[in-house]
Design a protein around this nucleic acid. Structure first.
Lengths: 188, 188
DNA sequence: ACCTGAACACCGTTCAAGT
DNA sequence: ACCTGAACACCGTTCAAGT
């Protein structure tokens, strides 16, 4: 097999693990090299500097994220007997995450901060969200009258809720019901 | 005057500047010391380690943030001749920030990431958002029937919009109109 | 109570050298 | 094309020593 691809894959896997568990400040080139079973110099051969390694890892993270979201959305796609309201309920429940320790959440918070000072990460992030908005809009276009409105409401709300959810006067259940009512109003 | 308080004030001012301009990764103890006109050892006398310095700076940031928000909210408080709808329009326009380079936004993104790995910062952040939710709820309680709903809708949406706003199918203007319609529906 | 400088292990990056 | 180790300036932290 392709040795080059193999070692790069291992490097990005190990970088992702460290980024998830210890954040950007805990991510060092030497730690990545050791965990990948290579020398620091060798790591630097494959990724010229720490920034390049971060960009490649974030790019890979968005790919995994994309696949996961598409799978989740496909899993709740309405069957014939499934009503639109039941589908929307599952959709909102998926987006408004329960646990603050959600797998993706930690990495997203790092990327939100890093992207302020790295143009490439900023572009990757914008591209990811635009794709996400497109899939979501297309997915719900068949069932609702204003898919653009629903997308523009749910995507920012989902990210914001992952930050402020525990500080709000309404419970998660109450909020989900509120969002569902709002969305159903859009249909008329 | 109190020398201790003076130098601590300078340190936190300089730390805030670096955090805003260069982010957490650009914030070093030596840079803070130099910019504050003291030695590294002296900085470490006032703040035992980098984490303590960050906690104190974030605490101060939230205080400034609180004061600014209260001023802004006071400035748009409805006069006798001012209608409720006009007030809500100004409120939503204030929360849904236009520029991605908003003064507070950069520091908030750093805190969102840091708070995942620092219990004290996590508590400060939660406390800030709970306070924010309380003020907002009380402010609008006189004009609307469901202030809890409006608060629980607007606070997460505002934060999420600062991240994803540029990737959404609707424009800022369209989104503000959508949110206003939703909020006015709550009144009935 | 407040301040100092030397020393430590660690970090990202550079570079000349190997295969 | 792929890999190595030494050396550089920088980092946070520790500590013994000053006033």
């Amino acid at each position: 097999m392709n040795k080059r691809k193999d070692i790069v894959k291992v490097i990005i896997e190990q970088t992702s693990l460290i980024l998830k568990d210890e954040g950007s400040s805990g991510l060092t080139m030497r730690k990545v090299a050791t965990n990948s079973g290579i020398t620091l110099s060798n790591l630097q051969y494959h990724f010229a500097d720490r920034t390049k390694l971060l960009q490649a890892t974030v790019e890979h993270f968005f790919q995994v994220c994309e696949e996961t979201i598409l799978e989740e959305l496909k899993a709740i796609e309405p069957k014939d007997q499934d009503s639109t309201d039941r589908f929307l309920k599952k959709l909102v429940g998926l987006l408004i995450i329960e646990d603050i320790d959600h797998y993706f959440n930690g990495i997203f918070r790092e990327i939100w901060a890093l992207s302020l000072r790295n143009k490439e990460l900023e572009d990757s992030l914008l591209h990811f969200y635009k794709n996400f908005a497109n899939w979501l809009t297309r997915l719900i276009a068949g069932f609702t009258k204003h898919p653009d409105k629903i997308t523009s409401l749910l995507i920012p709300y989902a990210d914001g809720y992952s930050i402020t959810g525990r500080a709000l006067p309404l419970s998660r259940k109450e909020i989900i019901n509120m969002l569902l009512k709002i969305i159903i109003e859009f249909k008329n």
